[in-house]
Design a protein around this nucleic acid. Sequence first.
RNA 1: GCCCUUGUAGCUCAGUCGGUAGAGCGCGUCCUUGGUAAGGACGAGGUCGGCGGUUCAAAUCCGCUCGAGGGCUCCA
Length: 689
Amino acid sequence: MQSPFLRCEPRVAHAVSRVPVPARPGIDAQRSTDFPHRVRRLTGRLGASPPCLAPVKPLAPIRQDWQGWSFLQRKDAMKAMTPLEELRHSASHVLAAAVLRLYPEAKLDIGPPTENGFYYDFDLEHKFTQEDLEKIEATMREVIKENQRFERIETSREEAEKLIRERGQEAYKLGRLEDIPEGDTVSFYRNGEFVDLCAGTHVNYTKKIKAFKLLSVAGAYHRGDEKNKQLQRIYGTAFPTKQELEDYLERLEEARKRDHRKLGRELKLFHIDEAVGQGLILWTPAGAILRQELQTFIASELRKQGYEQVFTPHIGKLGLYRTSGHFPYYKESQFSPIVDHEALESLAHEGCSCAELSNRLDEGKIDGYLLKPMNCPMHIKIFDSQPRSYRDLPVRLAEFGTVYRWEQSGELNGMTRVRGFTQDDAHLFCTEDQLGAEIQGCLELVKTVFTTLGMKDYRVRVGLRDPDSSKYTGEPALWDRAEAALREAVKTLGVDYAEEPGEAAFYGPKIDFVVKDVIGREWQLGTVQVDYNLPRRFGLSYVGADNKDHVPVIIHRAPFGSMERFTGVLIEHFAGNFPVWLAPEQVRLLPITDDQLPFAEELERTLKAAGIRCAIDRHSDKFGAKVRRAELDKIPHMFVLGKKEVETGKITLRSRVNKAAEGQHSVDEAVALLTEQIRNRTLPDGFSG
RNA sequence: GCCCUUGUAGCUCAGUCGGUAGAGCGCGUCCUUGGUAAGGACGAGGUCGGCGGUUCAAAUCCGCUCGAGGGCUCCA
């Protein structure tokens, strides 16, 4: 269930063996880095006590002047809500009220506002359907029409418990009540017959909720723990005005149009085939060009920075991953080990069960191979293949390394969450003293990549250790230096960043780059991680100037993260309108009639010779249809070839962005223009990241 | 993995109360040779995700299964 790669706690260990956990199972940094995983959503974070409710009944003291009330006294710092959050939170109460009117037996959990709306979790035998949502919406409108006042009620704990029980909402609300720290005030909010344990705040009357819509139903575990009961979560959104709601829904619709899964199919960039397997990407020719260009780009940057390219196999012995600490501790997120025929046969002869086989693999009594879940152990072996002197450092080994991880099927998502992916991975082996400069180099690389692609909408997270925890490996002094180095380096980036204590990997601090997809989900792309763990686990060393052995530090870094995820994000980022250097087809040649075909063919040879990717539209359609086709295919440039062009030997240019004709150019000029755009990796005109 | 939704031609979809399937786009052929987002005609494509069951008869009903989508969970 989880993809452990980044975690340090061997929490999977109990499943199978109790072998002493290697001091911090490895990690490779990759992980985080590497990989792709979705970052926690911010929603649902408002810790406060959620709402709840119950049947009608006279209520106790009502305090209407709650203004002076401090909502910040809760330990988890419940923040005062913004007006929009208040509106949405209020809408969630109205939702709950409506659900109770229709299904009095529903048990309520919580209903906070989220980044784009709100939700409320219900425990109810009846499964909500789309039609139910419409009914509930109608009932919500009734509640709103009644223009109920939202009133705050503060009670003692005893009263609160009594109130909850009277309303038959003890199932979840009592637990939520217990969450409220001793000493904090317990409050309820009431509107009409609905009363809910709630810290607030709310709008004053239900009529303030003018524009809302229920969007979907989804399963959600109580308190987000899959061991708990799964509740039904109804999602909705609300805005101050109808216009804003409509705009939002329209934007959602627009966003869906640039979904990389949709564009990937339309532009024939990649394919996922059931027969091949879930989460396994087939890069079609057009997509392969895209990836190839990206890799060429990054490889050239790496060369500038003194990296050396290596290649390593897709599988390696289990022992290697035992040393790194990945096996068996993270085996739940790996494909099962591969055991050779002979071993398998002899095991079969002795009647060994699958469980037994699994145990023996875990305990190291049988060897096997693992489809590699990360590249670092192999790069480490390359580093360790010869004696190293401090004069050799830093050693920077780079590889577009393909790794495989067993992601839960429900987590798979197009190209952004897959089971086989290629990291633009590299491991830097350096001395303590070199750490700062190397980290900075890594960040510069990430910045170069993001800038070149016009990606401005990302956030940078500096993961530091939690000062109160002892789970980290490595000397505190080293950590201090590494953290200082990261901080220092990130400042030179010139972008906003957030330091997040407790977000470090157990083996070292890190910096992650996170971007959002069209639906607003966050994905981690690039990362730079410092690792004090693996060098020790693998017993790495170099000879220092003092003629003594020293342990190098490893930096794991991947500016793209994975080619798959990055490409998926990039497709959405550009909405398929790639800059010329990335466009699978850079120029479409459009002969106005078949008479210009020979001219087009000659031109095609010229362009190809110049390294420009182009194709001729040979359909016998009218010219307008050819233009339309090229537009739909999102080709950056069209060369119009008619009688006039053949006579003058010049082509008429029409580019994707400036629809209109852009004048005539000699073939040489046109080639020069395109070559320039390709070489400079020019972003599309008018593109704003 | 769990919850909900979903699976009909390459794509987007329609298929009323069960009677062995349709459209548009795309593709092919022919006609058309036309200057900046769709010219016309004809045609080829589907054992309706798969397996079982009910029925005289199933794309339509039931069960199982595989895949997809949206969530949840995890991601040190």
